[in-house]
């Protein structure tokens, strides 16, 4: 199996979205490539004790986004590879972020403040992007 799902029911994120995120994440990190088969609905259901409709909905969403394709009677397969272009950028970005964290520590911020600052900035940037 190429990917194993997990679920956090306290997060407030609906379960199907969590599954979608996990597949996208795995694709982005290059863990899942074109041609890989996603776990069958029954596998996910019996592992996580979740509603099969949730899994189906997640797979439909991924299919809709053009990331996977269902082959009836066989399973659901990944049709694209996301990571190629962006994966290369991960290294430099990670290094930038590490430098930024080091700077924040030097300025006397503790871990919580760093997280809060990052989260806040990230959110306002996203909202600015939306609006």
């Amino acid at each position: 199996m190429v990917i194993e799902f997990h679920l956090n029911v306290r997060s407030g994120v609906s379960p199907y979205l969590q599954l979608v995120h996990q597949v996208r994440q795995a694709m982005r990190l290059g863990l899942v490539r074109e041609g890989d088969q996603l776990p069958t609905v029954k596998d996910v259901v019996s592992r996580l004790a979740i509603n099969p409709n949730t899994v189906l909905k997640a797979y439909r969403e991924l299919e809709h986004a053009g990331l996977v394709a269902a082959r009836p009677g066989v399973g659901t397969f990944v049709t694209t590879t996301l990571s190629d272009a962006s994966l290369a950028a991960h290294g430099p970005l990670r290094r930038d972020l590490q430098r930024w964290i080091a700077k924040a520590r030097q300025a006397g911020l503790d871990d919580e403040s760093i997280e809060a600052l990052f989260g806040d900035t990230f959110r306002s940037a996203t909202e600015a992007g939306v609006a």
């Binding site: 609905v41 029954k42 259901v45 019996s46 592992r47 004790a49 979740i50 509603n51 099969p52 409709n53």
Partner: peptide, 14 residues
């Protein structure tokens, strides 16, 4: 509890 719900969900899936 987990095992029971797993069994139930498998039935729903099948």
């Amino acid at each position: 509890r987990r095992e029971f719900l797993q069994g139930l969900m498998e039935v729903v899936a099948e």
